[in-house]
């Protein structure tokens, strides 16, 4: 069944912009990206939109639909309020290039700051045996498609641009967690994460988890886990005491 859908798309660039209304023919079962493409084809050939796989796996078509950060290719029109205009804006946290396309290079700058996997001195770099239970733990974090929705929704940088230089963001907290939980990784990233990458800025309001299209439990399984690991090395006297004793025993043993 076909019907007319009103789209409100933010159009402009870094110098300014505004909402433009389009009345687009929509069909049952369509997603937001479909009607954006129709708008492009029928009314606004110069509308800039980034997309790729149309299957929720490439993370390209991130935008804010009715104010909520989502993937356009995975948002069914039937899931939006019926009879109301659908508002589409670019990701608010990043500088806009044109229309719905933003400059997400901030994330790649942060990616470069993550120390790479570093095998423990007494372990081979590869290959090594990893058991399923150890693999499963970081497997969840490997599902990340880097759509940057978590980075976009995080209020630490969304509402406070000034925090960007010292805040890596949820996507990279899961990367740090993944490496820190790797059985063969020998680098200690806890203090680095707390002192230079802004783990302490996170106040665990779980918005990153809410918007993740891969349903990664970013807050529970990565951020809080890393906060607890930081507590181990910085704030817990009991763990510190037993850690020192264990280290002493190992030293005497060696």
């Amino acid at each position: 069944m076909s019907y007319q859908l009103v789209l409100r798309i933010w159009r402009g660039d870094s110098s300014g912009g505004d909402f433009v209304h389009y009345e687009v023919p929509a069909d049952e079962g369509e997603v937001v990206l479909d009607v954006v493409h129709k708008t492009q084809a029928l009314f606004a050939g110069d509308l800039a939109v980034r997309w790729n796989c149309k299957a929720g796996k490439c993370g390209s078509c991130s935008a804010e639909i009715n104010g909520v950060p989502r993937l356009m290719c995975m948002t069914k029109l039937s899931s939006l309020p019926a009879g109301r205009a659908v508002t589409i804006t670019p990701l608010r946290t990043f500088p806009v290039i044109k229309d719905l396309v933003t400059d997400v290079s901030f994330n790649y700058e942060k990616a470069r700051q993550v120390p790479a996997f570093s095998a423990q001195p007494d372990q081979p770099v590869a290959p090594f045996t990893m058991y399923q239970e150890d693999v499963e733990r970081s497997q969840e974090f490997r599902k990340c498609i880097e759509c940057w929705l978590c980075q976009d929704t995080c209020h630490v940088i969304r509402d406070h641009e000034e925090n960007k230089p010292h805040f890596a963001g949820p996507r990279f907290f899961i990367r740090y967690a993944e490496l820190d939980m790797h059985p063969n990784d020998g680098l200690d990233r806890k203090k680095l994460l707390q002192e230079t990458q802004g783990l302490g800025y996170c106040n665990i309001t779980k918005c990153c988890t809410e918007v993740c299209p891969e349903h990664i439990k970013i807050t529970d399984n990565a951020i809080i886990a890393m906060k607890e690991r930081v507590v181990d090395v910085k704030y817990d006297p009991v763990v510190k005491f037993f850690g020192r004793r264990r280290a002493g025993r190992e030293k005497r043993g060696s």
Binding site: S14, G67, V68, P90, R92, P95
Partner: peptide, 15 residues
């Protein structure tokens, strides 16, 4: 590189 965010005034557009 573009530096300014999209100029969207409302606090939220959530419905």
């Amino acid at each position: 590189p573009a530096k300014a965010r999209a100029a969207i005034a409302p606090r939220t557009l959530r419905l």
